[in-house]
Design a protein around this nucleic acid. Structure first.
Lengths: 245, 245
DNA sequence: GTAGTAACCTACTTATAGTAGGATAGCAAG
DNA sequence: CTTGCTATCCTACTATAAGTAGGTTACTAC
């Protein structure tokens, strides 16, 4: 039973290279990201993932737990990356340009990740209401927190309160909406507002999939026109109630 | 093998009442709506639907085709009903109040249909990217078409162009965005705008699920504050380009 | 060399979407 | 009443895919 017994042409590499978790997990994540993006959640099977990774299914399960967790992992990777990009863009922009800067960064990110976006963050697959909500909430809190500050009155240089570049990892349940005195009437309202804004961005990104002739700048402009005036008015009220209603 | 052979207490009604399609299909739809709403798309099995309807699975398949089509059917039912409600509310309102009226009707509808909304229109289940997009598009076209008109300048009594009360059935692929001269710069932009607005509403409705203390009026107000000013400005430009950019 | 363990495997169970092919209630005509 | 048609309904199956039990082997440390 030495290695010489079955000397027929082995279709599989003679000695299976073993790969540590820290390498295999990202590899699986990349493969799954691609598959989920192209075929959606339902259209992707764990057998496919395993086969493309060159390993067997139990290994995949050992490493990522379940199909849902794998999806969650992919989601978190994208969400984190996007949060970093948007936050950086917003902070780098002048106060009065933060909305446009954030929007632009968002749409540019989507543009670069079309295939993955299609099946991941866009509608069409997610079985994870809770997880999606979590990510959405974090993203919303971040965006709205920064935007409300940036739009507020045109002052307050760059004191982003708690989360400066730390993008509030999607897996991190912290990142409550900044309850500064500048936040709108109540933190709950700011939360709602953030979710509405986020939903608009998400929906527009989804719509973009079937209208690729439009470019990111136009979409960013559109969002600025749509929500800029309203946000300014609200921030004005928050900063100093002048025109009550 | 005559009916008398197995005379043991039959747990099933002796003589199975047969029910015509026109009755069975809505029954199945109601049951599925409930299940999809409570357990999501994946958490609902066709066996469950069949069992609750008191029939066997092949009958369900004969009547609705497939699981996706059943989901689609439920979706269409809700979407149609909602479209009717929103359109009616918008048309009944004074021109300057159409945004608020539509928003209010929307949130009231969601409030009345919480359980179904959870798993149906909200994120969390849909495997039907195309269908969801279809419904979203129709709804968006309708809402935005009416809103832009209503907000436009404050005039133009009630000439809703093509689709007055006909709510653009979700299964109907017509209902292109109204390309009147009042529509924003280009029909494509109006389409994009409509999707963004719709996304904001959808997201806010989803968020509402976990903040039931808020009432529909507050949410409608929030949306008016957020997007009212922007829409007014855009309609102003569209009606007569004064302050270009 | 010789454990010990992390990585990996084959082969299975379970759940569920969807189907093949047959049985029967209800009804209309003979 | 009998015969025949057909829409409704059934039992019993296949196929696919998630997830698991339990064993094997490459690598590492001593």
């Amino acid at each position: 039973m030495s290695k010489a017994t079955a000397t027929r042409a082995a279709p599989v590499p003679r000695t299976r290279r073993r790969v540590p978790r820290e390498v295999r997990i990202p590899q699986i994540a990349r493969i799954a990201e691609d598959l989920f993006g192209r075929f959606g959640y339902q259209g992707t099977s764990m057998d496919d993932v395993a086969r493309l990774a060159g390993i067997s299914k139990p290994v995949v399960y050992d490493l990522v737990g379940s199909k849902e967790e794998l999806f969650k992992l992919c989601l978190a990777r994208s969400a984190d990356e996007m949060a970093v990009r948007v936050a950086a863009a917003v902070e780098a922009a002048a106060e009065e340009d933060r909305l446009r800067a954030g929007a632009l960064a968002f749409f540019r990110f989507v543009d670069e990740h079309r295939p993955a976006w299609r099946g991941l963050l866009s509608a069409g697959s997610a079985p994870l209401t809770a997880e999606m909500a979590e990510i959405r909430r974090n993203q919303a809190a971040l965006v709205a927190g920064l935007l409300i500050q940036g739009v507020s009155s045109g002052h307050s240089a760059s004191s982003p309160g708690s989360g400066s570049p730390g993008p509030a990892s999607a897996t991190d349940p912290a990142a409550e909406p900044p309850t500064d005195q500048t936040a709108a009437t109540a933190p709950v309202i700011a939360d709602a507002l953030a979710n509405a804004i986020n939903g608009a961005f998400e929906a527009l990104a989804g719509w973009w999939q079937s209208h690729e002739t439009i470019n990111a700048d136009d979409l960013a402009d559109l969002m600025v026109q749509l929500m800029g005036p309203g946000l300014e008015a609200m921030a004005g009220i928050a900063a100093g109630p002048k025109g009550a209603e």
